[in-house]
Simulated scan of single mutants.
Amino acid sequence: MFALVVRFDLRDAEAADAFDALLAETLPLITEREPGTLVYATHTPQDAPLARIFYEVYADREAHAAHEATPHTSRFLAAVRDWVSDVRLELLGSPTGKGLPG
Rank of each mutant, 00 (worst) to 15 (best):
V5N: 07
V6F: 13
D9Y: 03
D9V: 02
D12S: 08
E14C: 03
E14F: 01
A15H: 03
A16W: 10
A16I: 07
D17I: 06
A18D: 11
D20A: 13
A21V: 03
L22V: 06
L22H: 12
A24E: 12
E25W: 06
E25D: 13
T26I: 09
L29N: 08
L29W: 05
I30M: 12
G36W: 03
T37I: 03
V39E: 04
A41S: 13
T42W: 09
H43K: 03
T44I: 13
P45V: 05
P45M: 05
Q46L: 15
A48P: 07
A48S: 13
A48K: 10
L50S: 05
L50K: 05
A51G: 01
F54W: 09
E56Y: 02
V57W: 00
V57T: 04
R61D: 13
R61W: 06
A63V: 01
A63N: 04
H64F: 11
H64Y: 11
A65M: 02
A66Y: 00
H67D: 00
H67Q: 00
E68I: 04
R81N: 09
D82F: 08
D82R: 15
V84G: 08
D86E: 12
V87T: 14
V87P: 01
E90L: 14
L92C: 10
G93M: 04
T96E: 10
T96H: 12
K98P: 10
K98S: 11
L100S: 01
L100F: 13
G102T: 09
